[in-house]
Computed example of a mutant assay.
Amino acid sequence: MRHRVEVEMAAAPEAVWAVLTDVQSWHRWTPSIELIRRQEPQEPFGLGSRALVKQPRMRRAVWEVSAFEAGRSFDWRTGSPGARTEAGHELRPVPGGTRVILDLAVTGPLAPLGTLLYGRLIRQYLGQEAAGLKRWCETTATGP
């Protein structure tokens, strides 16, 4: 199961990156997040950073950053028996702003069951995250 959404926004990549990597504030701009609590809040967000995430209608999960390119992208992942979930966040500069690419993949023997139970909800949450990030960055972040 793989889902992907792209959104362009009239905000500088640096401003979008600052919002995207301030994960503890995600609940301010997307209804798909109830709570994110960094496990090491004093450390800069980067490779190996972990956060407890609670989303509506889903179990709490600890996500760990598995790939990180400062100012450009990060991936993080979580797992449960029979499934691994990885989410990607990528920024690309475009004329007048930034294109953000969000993707989520679920793999493992229970991935088909996850698709059946949560596929629609995951697509909804990715859409909410893209729209909320765009709104927030265009109204509060510095433009291009």
Rank of each mutant, 00 (worst) to 15 (best):
M1K: 01
M1N: 07
R4T: 13
V5N: 03
A10Y: 01
A11R: 04
A11K: 05
A11P: 04
P13N: 06
E14F: 05
A15G: 15
A18T: 05
A18H: 00
S25R: 12
S25T: 12
W26T: 04
R28W: 00
W29D: 05
T30A: 05
S32E: 08
I33W: 02
L35E: 14
E40I: 00
P41A: 00
E43Y: 09
F45G: 10
G46A: 10
G48H: 07
G48S: 07
G48E: 08
G48D: 09
L52W: 00
V53L: 09
V53K: 00
K54W: 10
M58N: 09
W63L: 00
V65M: 02
F68N: 02
S73C: 10
A83S: 11
T85F: 12
T85H: 08
A87W: 03
G88I: 04
G88A: 11
E90W: 09
E90I: 10
P93A: 14
P95Y: 04
P95S: 12
G96K: 02
T98L: 04
R99E: 00
I101H: 04
L102T: 09
D103I: 05
L104T: 03
V106K: 05
T107A: 09
T107G: 06
P109A: 14
P112W: 06
L113G: 11
L116P: 11
Y118D: 02
R120A: 15
L121Q: 12
I122P: 02
R123N: 14
R123S: 14
Q124Y: 12
Y125P: 12
Q128N: 13
Q128S: 11
E129T: 14
A131S: 13
K134H: 10
C137Y: 01
E138D: 09
T140E: 15
T140R: 15
T140W: 12
T142R: 14
P144G: 14
